[in-house]
């Protein structure tokens, strides 16, 4: 539905002094949408319908003639409204697949967690992953001319594990957890200008070789600072690998707008127990840091267990060489 600049008295145009909702926000019928000011008279324009604000056509501060469309609202319930992707600009779509109301135990947990840490309450879970099989697959693929890195393999596995554990691919807002439909995996890159997080859109729909190609390209672009805004927009989950810098384990800070981040440590030989005997295995330690409002410990643990299984036996986990 088109929202137009209303007429106050016989005014011809109004200045939008505040947007009370942003694009992507849900607005209820009768709730304030924006405030206009004209000749020192303020007036809050309320939404005539319930739905999601899909487009704001005039930013704060614009003077808009009466009758002109200022915003578009897609009518519907909060949980079912689909926000179309901005294909023209090529931003990886990041739309809400479903919302989980923060009610009952989850609501109580959310509020307690928030109260205890004042901001988003963080927690982390970690485990060791045996990488012997992944390393040999990687070698086999390299021999066949398909070069992938272990980070590519981790991103591939993460995207599949997110698909199986949807709640990890989300963000906690004040009153709900929004679970995203797309799985857009960001990966932290140390660039001369600082930490950048380019995004692989819908990594779960890409094979590991595609992920490798895209990641190499994105890394190069952010390193050279020749990337576009779209390359670093729309992430729903982040992987931070400091293993290449020799770090055994890291518990990163969750990116704002996301609910979890995976810290990947170095792969190295460790003593492991196999069939009652001590042997040597190539082990990688991973930690999932998460916003406890969105994800519970058990959910985080299930995600990590899924990731471990996939990386310890990538073929079984669905990897196509």
């Amino acid at each position: 539905m088109d929202i137009v600049m209303p007429k106050l008295g016989i005014m011809l145009k109004g200045k939008i002094v505040k947007w009370l909702k942003a694009e992507g926000d849900y607005v209820q019928a009768g709730e304030g949408l924006f405030t206009i000011e004209t000749e020192k008279v303020t007036h809050t324009v309320r939404s005539p319908v319930s739905g999601v604000v899909v487009r704001i056509l005039h930013p704060q501060g614009s003077v808009v003639p009466v009758g002109q469309v200022v915003a578009i609202i897609q009518e519907g319930e909060a949980a079912t409204v689909h926000v179309p992707a901005d294909e023209e600009r090529g931003i990886a779509a990041r739309t809400v697949m479903y919302s989980i109301p923060l009610e009952g135990v989850k609501g109580v947990t959310a509020h307690r967690m928030l109260e205890s840490s004042r901001k988003s309450p963080r927690a982390a879970v970690g485990l060791d992953i045996l990488m012997d099989e992944a390393i040999s697959i990687r070698k086999r693929m390299a021999d066949a001319g398909k070069k992938i890195s272990l980070t590519d393999l981790v991103i591939w596995a993460v995207s599949r594990s997110l698909e199986a554990n949807r709640v990890v691919n989300s963000v906690a807002l004040d009153d709900c957890v929004q679970v995203f439909e797309q799985i857009n995996v960001g990966f932290a890159v140390d660039t001369p200008k600082g930490l950048m997080v380019p995004v692989i859109p819908e990594a779960n729909k890409k094979e590991v070789t595609e992920i490798a190609a895209l990641r190499a390209d994105l890394t190069k672009r952010v390193q050279e600072f020749s990337h576009s805004e779209t390359d670093i927009t729309g992430g729903t989950f982040t992987v931070s690998n400091l293993g290449t810098l020799g770090i055994d384990r890291l518990i990163p800070i969750v990116n704002p707008g996301e609910a979890a981040i995976l810290g990947v440590g170095r792969i190295g030989p460790r003593a492991i127990v196999r069939g009652g005997a001590v042997g040597i295995g190539q082990v990688m330690e991973v930690w999932l840091a998460f916003d406890h409002r969105a994800i519970n410990g058990a959910e985080a643990a299930r995600f990590l267990a899924d990731l471990k299984n996939r990386l310890e036996d990538p073929k079984e986990g669905g990897l196509k060489e």
């Binding site: 505040k18 947007w19 009370l20 909702k21 942003a22 926000d25 607005v27 709730e31 304030g32 405030t35 809050t44 704060q60 807002l173 004040d174």
Partner: peptide, 12 residues
């Protein structure tokens, strides 16, 4: 601040 923009979340 009269908070504006994204972080307003309908508080006004």
């Amino acid at each position: 601040e009269g908070r504006m923009g994204r972080d307003v979340r309908g508080q006004m």
